[in-house]
Structure formats: C-alpha cells, structure tokens
Design a binder for these strands. Sequence first.
DNA 1: GTCGGCTTTGGATAGTTATTCAATTATTGC
DNA 2: GCAATAATTGAATAACTATCCAAAGCCGAC
Lengths: 158, 158
Amino acid sequence: MKERLERLKVVKSLIKTHRIDSQDSLLQLLAEAGYSVTQATLSRDLKYLKVGKVADGHSGYYYTMPSEEERKESEKHSIQDFLRGYVSVDWNESIVVVRTFSGHSDSVALAIDNMGMEDVLGTISGRDNVVFVALRKGSRGDDFIAALKGKIPEFDPE
Amino acid sequence: MKERLERLKVVKSLIKTHRIDSQDSLLQLLAEAGYSVTQATLSRDLKYLKVGKVADGHSGYYYTMPSEEERKESEKHSIQDFLRGYVSVDWNESIVVVRTFSGHSDSVALAIDNMGMEDVLGTISGRDNVVFVALRKGSRGDDFIAALKGKIPEFDPE
DNA sequence: GTCGGCTTTGGATAGTTATTCAATTATTGC
DNA sequence: GCAATAATTGAATAACTATCCAAAGCCGAC
C-alpha cells in the first residue's frame, strides 16, 4: 500500500498536464503510467486531492487542481468565520467543545470542517450555540488546540 | 425566455452564499426563490456558468464559482457579448448609460456584471435597449470607461 | 509467529449529473 | 401579419461518480 502516495502524485501531475474529462480516461492514463486501479479508488483519490471538475462553457468538462491561492483564500474565510462566532473552548481527551455567539454554531462548525485539520473526525453544531468537535483516534484536545493556534494567530484560549 | 438570465444570476448568488452539494438541493433553493426548473436545465445553467464541483477533502462536495484564473476564458465571452450588443456610451458622475442593439440590453448588462469590475455597483437593463451602470462611490464615469478600455482593446467610444 | 486494529482496495451499486430527443417558445426576415 | 429559424426547456435516459461492503494488506504488541 506504499504505492498510494506515489499514485496520488502521478494523478496530480496528469491532471495538471492533460485535459481530462472523465475518471475513465484518467484511469487509462494511469494504467499507461503503470498504476492499475479501479474507478472507485480513483474517485477517492480525487476527493482526497480536492480535484474539481468544471465546465469550459461549451464543449465539455475537465478536471483541475485547486490553485494554491484558492486554498488559502478559502482558509482565510474559514478563519474569519471561526473568529466571528467564537466565544470559548474546552476539551477532554476526545471531544472539543466550542461555545459560540448566538446563531453562529453552524458557521463555526462549517469553518472547522473546512480548515481540513488532520485531528478532526467531524463536527456537529447544536441548537444551543455549541459545536462539538470529535477528534480522530490518537489526537487529543491539546493537539487540536495547538493546531488551531498554528492556523489562527489571533486565537488564544483562556 | 426572459427569465433565463435572471435565473442565472440567482444561481450564481446562491452558489456564492450557500454550501450546496447537489443539483437537487440547489433546485430546491431555486424553487424557494421562485424559479421552478428541472435538473436538466440546471445542469445546463451550471455548465454555462462554469460552476465547478469540488471536494472539501473530508465530508463531502460542494459547488463553487470559477476563480480568477479560470475566469479569463469566461471574461472573453463577456467581452464578446458586450461587443456584440454595444452601440454607444454616455456618462455622468455616477451613472453610465450604455445603448445597445435591439434585444441586447440583457446580455450586455450581464456581461458587465460578469466582468467583475471594481467601479461597478450594479446594472439594470431597461426595456429600451439601454443599460444603466451604477458606479461605486468615488468612481466616476471616466474611471469606468478607462477600465473598460483596459479590458477591451477593441472598445473605443467616439 | 499471530492477533487485533487500521488502511486501502475492488466489485457492485446507489446516487448524481449530462445529454438526447421532442416539444414548445422566442426571434428573425420577409 | 406569417413562415422559417434558432433557443430554451422537460422527460427520459445515458453517462459518470461516490459510496457500501467485504476482502485483503499492513503494521505493532504481544
């Protein structure tokens, strides 16, 4: 299973250098490059890489890598959303509880989701201005908080 | 068929302001906004608008408007639409009035919208082959015209 | 070693989106 | 006005993509 990362790189470069309009055709290119996988796996790879499919407007569709800029831009928005709603955090070994201003729990949860943090398994936003962040096995609340600080300089609990 | 351009604008703004993960859910939002169409039509709209569907990496997929780079191509279309409809311009301190060929006011207004110009507050297209372009405070008609010339080499009033 | 947990994968399939085809509605040219 | 032409649309369906589930594969702890 060591091949996976290698394959991801190849997928990435194929998408950058070719105009690919379906997973099947990408599958072929991959096969030519020596990586035989199924469409199911490829679909997962594309999801992982955040590859997008867009129309050129007339004749068809093609896959594209997210630009670095876009990624940063989107993260900036997430950070803004987070800060706008954030009131306080607490945590234990496996759950982080974020309190938010009234009506902000949804946007804060979404923001955390969109930051794409390793530690985060998922979030739910409650009715009560609270967001629960479930952490991936092996991650502790401290890890998450540390990672969040890394992403958001203005964020400093206590 | 007058509704189409109007609908396209609504689709665009819905995509910018919501996290939409399927055409069906967008269809619902559209219906709430008063536009009842089928998935087939929506698919065509999205193709026309070059809307993309990308993964956030973890939890799902969402639709997104094309980013700067990708928009170059689309801007070319807008320029074509503009030139195809354009007859003459006049302006004062805060409003630019564009006269167009018969039936082109909608497409010219949309084109101006889509060029995403700083100076532009908004546009309306009248029945009478005229488009009003409202300028942002601090912008003057001359600024707008200059910016337009910058974008469209073939465009030269008088 | 081998047991147990986590990851990765393929086959099958569910789910989603694009397109075909026919009908309808606008538009253009007399 | 009318006829011819082009645009737009919905229903049905084809095409494509994501996910479920079961089956390995890959560790590390014993």
